[in-house]
Nucleic acid binder design. Structure first.
Length: 790
DNA sequence: GCCAAAATTCTTTTT
DNA sequence: GAATTTTGGC
């Protein structure tokens, strides 16, 4: 590579922190492969880093190495990650390594934050002002709804969500409206999709706003259209580092190619087995074809796993081995010997799952595991609630990561809309959100009127409102309240330059009547909302200005949680990538949940493989212990469904899994062919197996409940299972639900339900019953879940 | 324009 | 079953 640019001397900070040279601590602790990945700084390098092989360590050491060798200054390194979490982590670790200040690396961040930075610098090239607003998906959707309505498209036939995802898909592929291929036209509204995309982009420009996708697409357009600018950036970014390369989409790929050119010093780190963002446009192909894209690229494989025990690793690898189209890596356990086998257990329903996991966690805690080392990783966030409920009653500390987001709460978004409209009068979406919040007598009709006028005049709603308060077009009542609304903003804007932004925020919320609105509503809920508003104002403090805070919110969407007390972590599998815990619980391994049917519908086999990678990610988070569980019954959108174990359970290697007795939904896992020898001992169908006496001692009798009332109903559940399973299993292992056809319950019949107790059938519609329960009142239940009582 | 009741949809995962 | 959206009555 050409380093003719005169080499700057070592970053002064880096120099102070550590002596330079081969003995540098960041090189010492590396294994030979890692070291190769760190020291090969010229040209393109792909580091295939399996789970737990020290991926982040390599990235940070590489940066440290580049700086220490004086190959580049901190601002000449472009280092992109996917999530804010990862960016933060890298910052932190680099600081530790070389003692550099946080501001030292301006180009370390997520694709989106770096995109924002670029776009703010060159916004005018795409017709924006540099103080543009970043819309979230909610705003996006509302905007699209308006456009769809304007085109007279039937919302029922073509839902706005679909348009959003189609446009998002285009942006993920780096396609501006003029570049969308004509064969994509059918994707929405019989060809209108492209028209709407154009209109949408136009609207965004009018609003001086961008969406998430634009943060990638606009910079690409700008750099493509301005070679001189591109040349500047190429010269600036001497080294490019990319984390989680398997998750990049086409737009991000284009981005990287632009910056690196063909001969740039680009280092991409990734693991094809951990690609779990296909639904967001990620292309595993990017990693699979790296060597073609960057001829002469060096590929380094990291296969020494320092995280997990041999059993955990074996299970994970066996599972992922069911995927085709992998680059193929064999992870070796270097950490802690063989360790414990994975614990597999089953439970009757999701409540019991929460109860049982709660107990196991308490056991772990008694044995000296801090709660911080324990995590529950779920497929979908609705699963979290059951655990929260249970842990609250247990008094077990927990923390939900990535649950319902603070900034997505209605009251917080309203408040943010006030701030946005103050900073940026063109923000019509913010205007619409709050014009009648609190109620000002300015409803749909008035807003519609404003819209018509604004469109005719080609200006913003706020601007029109400002004019309208001087004319006679509005009824006096409306005019008066709109006047107040507008003048409030005018006044607040005057404060903006000289008043601390937290103080101003406080004033806005009070003077607008927004906090009063909630104070008047005397519900416990309103109390919480007021708390949230206070919290919001408090969270603004660390930021230099209102604008800075708003940008942070739209990019990060998460409230910084300070180092917390000891608590169990509950999060989604997606959220868990990159993390590790001593003990990991993986609940809900059931068909129709994991793998998620939607993933299968949309992407078929590819979707299944992605789900399997998700399972792989889950297992490989565990250092010492992994617990996999499934429930026979789960409530999904309102009603109870019986379930069968996930196919992934059958794909685990028997040799590394301990099966714990439990109501195994009528069958034990099959496991894979290589373990076929086991199938005589662990018959797929225990009820047909050669050991009939096991039937008698199975779940019902073995169950040892703690509470009498509970046990009575539980015993019934299991007894019931036994009978249904008996029937079902003589056919196949289909779900219990289908067996219920045999049991019909007439209107008026007295029945018992596992959850609601005794009741009387008041209505029967096929296998859906309405039952008036003595304790629980009227409920709709599946016939399969009640039992006739004599 | 507002509010309450009724109907409807939804739940994958996230920057 | 919850949360959101549509509807109907005032």
């Amino acid at each position: 590579m050409d380093f003719s640019v005169s080499m700057p001397s070592l970053s002064a900070l880096a120099m102070q922190a550590r002596p330079m040279g081969d003995a540098a601590p960041w090189l010492e602790k590396l294994n030979p492969e890692q070291r190769e990945a760190v020291e090969t700084v010229n040209g393109a390098v792909l580091v295939l880093a399996g789970a737990g092989t020290g991926k982040t360590r390599v990235l940070t050491a590489r940066i440290a190495y580049i700086l220490a060798q004086g190959l580049a200054r901190p601002h000449e390194i472009l280092s992109v990650t996917f999530t804010n979490k990862a960016a933060k982590e890298m910052r932190h670790r680099i600081e530790q390594l070389i003692g550099m200040g946080v501001e030292g690396m301006p180009w370390l961040g997520t694709f989106h934050s770096i995109g924002t930075k670029l776009l703010r610098r060159h916004a005018e090239y795409v017709g924006l002002q540099s103080n543009f607003t970043i819309l979230d998906s909610d705003d996006q959707l509302r905007l699209m709804k308006q456009l769809i309505a304007a085109e007279n498209i039937d919302e029922k036939r073509f839902p706005p969500r679909l348009l959003a995802s189609v446009i998002d898909g285009w942006k993920n592929r780096g396609l501006t409206p003029d570049k969308v291929p004509s064969q994509d036209a059918h994707l929405y509204g019989s060809g209108l999709g492209i028209t709407l995309y154009k209109a949408y982009q136009q609207r965004l420009r009018d609003l001086n706003a961008v969406d998430f996708g634009d943060l990638l697409v606009h910079p690409i357009s700008i750099l493509q259209a301005h070679p001189q600018l591109l040349e500047d950036y190429r010269r600036r970014f001497k080294f490019i580092l990319v984390d989680e390369y398997q998750d990049t989409n086409v737009a991000q790929y284009l981005w990287l190619r632009l910056f690196s050119g063909t001969g740039g010093n680009i280092c991409c780190v990734g693991d094809d087995d951990q690609s779990i963002y296909g639904w967001r446009g990620a292309e595993v192909e990017n990693i699979l074809r790296f060597e073609r894209d960057f001829p002469g690229a060096k590929v380094v494989r990291l296969e020494r796993n320092y995280r997990s025990t041999a059993h955990i690793l074996a299970a994970a690898q066996h599972l992922i081995g069911h995927n085709a189209g992998r680059l193929g890596k064999e992870l070796r356990a270097e950490a802690g010997g063989e360790g414990e086998k994975l614990q597999l257990f089953s439970v009757w329903d999701s409540e019991e799952e929460a109860r049982s996991i709660g107990e196991k966690i308490e056991d772990l805690q008694r044995n000296g595991s801090p709660l911080n080392t324990i995590a529950i990783l779920v497929r979908a966030s609705f699963q979290m609630r059951e655990f929260e409920d249970r842990f609250v009653t247990l008094g077990l500390n927990y923390r939900v990561v990535g649950g319902p987001r603070f900034y997505e709460r209605a009251e917080v978004r309203d408040a943010l809309a006030y701030f946005r409209l103050m900073v940026q009068p063109q923000d019509d979406l913010a205007f619409e959100r709050i014009i009648n919040q609190p109620k000002r007598g300015l409803g749909d009709a008035t807003v519609k009127q404003l819209h018509v006028l604004a469109r005719a005049a080609g200006c913003s709603l706020f601007h029109i409102a400002q004019q309208l308060i001087e004319t006679q077009e509005l009824k006096p009542k409306q005019r008066a309240s709109m006047r107040e609304f507008v003048l409030n903003f005018v006044r607040w804007r005057e404060h903006l330059p000289n008043m601390p932004h937290t103080e101003l925020a406080q004033i806005i919320l009070e003077e607008s009547g927004y906090t009063d609105m909630w104070k008047q509503e005397r519900t416990p809920e309103a109390q919480g909302r007021l708390e949230n508003l206070k919290e919001l104002v408090r969270s603004m403090e660390p930021y230099g200005s209102m604008q800075e805070f708003l940008e942070h919110v739209s990019l990060v969407m998460e409230v910084e949680v300070g180092a917390q007390q000891d608590a169990v972590t509950i999060m989604t599998l997606h959220g868990a990538k990159g993390l590790e815990f001593d003990s990991v619980f993986l609940p809900g391994w059931e068909e129709n949940l994991f793998p998620h049917p939607r993933a299968l519908d949309e992407k078929g086999k590819a979707g299944l493989e992605e789900e399997r990678r998700l399972a792989y990610v889950g297992i490989t988070r565990a250092k010492l212990r992994a617990f996999i569980s499934f429930a026979s019954n789960r409530r999904m959108h309102g009603s109870w469904n019986s379930t069968s174990p996930s196919r992934f359970i059958d794909e685990l290697p028997h040799a590394s899994v301990d099966i714990n007795e439990g109501p195994f939904a009528g069958r034990m896992p099959r496991f894979d062919a290589p373990q076929a020898a086991y199938s005589s001992n662990f018959a797929p169908n225990r009820f047909q197996s050669a050991t009939p006496q096991r039937f008698e001692e199975s779940p019902v009798e073995r169950y040892t409940p703690q509470h009498d009332r509970y046990s009575a109903s539980k015993a019934r559940q299991h007894a019931y299972v036994k009978t249904i399973e008996g029937q079902v299993l003589s056919r196949s292992d289909g779900p219990a639900k289908s067996a219920s056809k045999a049991t019909t319950h007439a209107v008026g019949a007295r029945v018992f339900h596992i959850k609601f107790g005794y009741g009387r059938v008041t209505q029967a519609d096929g296998d859906k019953l309405t039952v008036e329960f003595e304790k629980a009142g009227d409920k709709k239940v599946m016939a399969g879940f009640v039992e006739a009582v004599v």
